[in-house]
Design a protein around this nucleic acid. Structure first.
Lengths: 243, 243
DNA sequence: TTTTGTATGATTGTATGACATACAAAATGG
DNA sequence: CCATTTTGTATGTCATACAATCATACAAAA
C-alpha cells in the first residue's frame, strides 16, 4: 500500500536538454542578437567547429530552424539566415494583428477572474520593462504577457503562432524596441489593451490589440529605414559565435 | 554556343529532392490518410526498415515534422503522431478564420484584374471538385485556390500559416470533407466569398470567409463525434507504410 | 503477499568516418 | 579574352558504434 502523506510533490520531470536544443537556442539568440545577420550562409563544418558539436546534431538542429522559417534553403548551396522582405515583415505584423485581436476576444470570453488579475499584473511588469528601456527585459515581459493572454484565452495554438511570427521578425524588433519614443507609446497602447480587457469590452480590446501591433510595425519600419543604407552588403560568412 | 530559340524555358532548377523531403511527404500523407493514427509511436528503427532509409535522413525528416507541430515529443520516449484535442481543433479553425478573412481583404486591396479572373476560375474548379465528391480533388483544388488568394493578397506568409493549420487538422478534414451535406454547403459558401470579392466588398468577403471556416469547423466536429466511440483505443505501434 | 533490487532489452542521443554528387572557383589552353 | 578542364568546397546519405535512459521482467528479501 502506498503512503499518502497528503503532500503534492511536483512531477520533477526531466527537462529534456538534448544537445540539439542547445544548438537551436544558440543559433536563435545569435540571429536575434544580430551576430548572424540575414543572408549569412551557414556552413555546417564551420558551425560544428565553432559550437564543438557533431555534424549529426547540428544538422538536426538546422532542420528544425529551417522548418520554423528562420533559415532558408537553396538547392546545393545549403542554408542561410532568412532574409525578411519588407512585404514579409508587413504581413507578419498584419497576421500578428488579427491573431492578437482574436486572442484578446477569446480571453474575455474564457478567462477566469484569477487570470484577469494575473494579466493585469503582468501588464504592469511589461510597462515597467518598457520604462526601464532594457530590450532583454521587454522581450521577457512581453512573452510572459502573451503567454498569460493566450492561456486565459484557452488558445495555446495562437501562442505558438505568435511566437513563430516574433521569431521571424526578431531582426526588426531588436532595433525598434530600443527607441525611446516607441517605448513611451507602447506603454500607452498596453494601457489601452488592459483597460479594454478589464472592462470586458471585446471590441475595444480587439481594436487596441490591432492598434498596438500596427504601431509597432510602423516603428519597426522607421527604424529599419534608418539603417538600410549600410545593409545592402553582400552575403557574409558566418561570424564567430563563441562570444 | 547555346541555342536561343526565343522561348522562355522554365528555370527547371532541380527543385531539390533530398531524400528527407520524400520521407516527410511519405509520413505526411500517411498521417493524412489515417495510416498513422494520432497517438501512434514512431520507432526510428522500424521506420528505417519500412522506408528503407538510413536513420540519419529519417531523423532529420522527423525533426522537421516535429517543428511543424505534426509530431509530439516526450523525453526518452521519442515521437508520436500528434493528437489534436478538441480545444486545439477549435482554435485551429478560429485562427484560420481570421487569417482567411485577412487575406480576403488584402486580396481586394492588392490583386490585379488578372488575379481576380484567375481566382474566379479556380473557384469554379473548386466547386466542381466539391460536386465530384473526391476528397483528393477537393484538397488539391482548395490548395490552388488559397495559393491564388494569398498570392493576390501579396501575403505568402499567410499561405504558409494556413497550410500549417490545415496540416495539423488534416485528420479531421479527411472525415468531414467526405460528407455530402458539407459539400453542398461548401459550394454555397465559396460562392459567397467569390461574389464578395468580385464586388470588391472587403467587409462581406471577410464575413464570408469567416462563415466558411466556422461552418467547416462545425461539420468537422459533427463528423468526429460520429466516430469517437471507436477511437478511445490505446496507443498503437506504427502500421505498415508500404501500402 | 508485497516490496525492493537487479538484469536485460528497447530506444533515443550523439559521434565518427566515409563516399557520392553537385556546384563554384581557379587553372589551363586556345 | 574566351572556353574547357581541374580542383576544392559543401551538402546528402549511409553504416556503425557507444552512451544514457527507460521499461519490463524476474529474483530476492521483507
Amino acid at each position: 500500500m502506498a503512503v499518502d502523506t497528503g503532500m503534492k510533490l511536483a512531477p520533477l520531470r526531466y527537462e529534456s536538454a538534448p544537445l540539439r536544443n542547445q544548438i537551436i537556442a544558440a543559433l536563435r539568440s545569435a540571429i536575434e542578437a544580430g551576430i548572424l545577420k540575414p543572408g549569412t550562409r551557414l556552413i555546417e563544418r564551420d558551425l560544428c567547429e565553432q559550437l564543438n558539436v557533431s555534424r549529426t546534431s547540428l544538422r538536426e538542429a538546422l532542420r528544425e530552424l529551417q522548418a520554423l522559417g528562420v533559415l532558408s534553403h537553396t538547392a546545393n548551396r545549403g542554408l542561410m539566415v532568412g532574409t525578411l522582405t519588407r512585404e514579409d515583415a508587413s504581413n507578419a505584423y498584419s497576421i500578428r494583428s488579427v491573431l492578437e485581436a482574436l486572442v484578446a476576444r477569446q480571453f474575455i470570453d474564457h478567462a477566469i477572474d484569477d487570470e484577469f488579475a494575473q494579466l493585469a499584473s503582468l501588464g504592469l511588469t511589461l510597462k515597467k520593462a518598457y520604462r526601464s528601456g532594457s530590450v532583454e527585459q521587454i522581450l521577457k515581459a512581453k512573452r510572459a504577457f502573451y503567454d498569460c493572454l493566450c492561456s486565459g484565452a484557452r488558445n495555446n495554438l495562437a501562442f505558438d503562432f505568435i511566437n513563430r511570427l516574433t521569431l521571424r521578425t526578431s531582426q526588426l524588433r531588436s532595433t525598434s524596441l530600443a527607441r525611446k519614443e516607441r517605448q513611451q507609446q507602447s506603454v500607452r497602447e498596453i494601457d489601452a489593451i488592459l483597460a479594454a480587457i478589464a472592462a470586458r469590452d471585446a471590441g475595444a480590446a480587439s481594436d487596441a490589440a490591432h492598434a498596438h501591433v500596427e504601431s509597432a510595425a510602423a516603428s519597426a519600419f522607421a527604424a529599419q529605414d534608418q539603417v538600410t543604407e549600410d545593409e545592402i552588403a553582400p552575403p557574409r560568412r558566418s561570424a564567430n559565435l563563441t562570444g
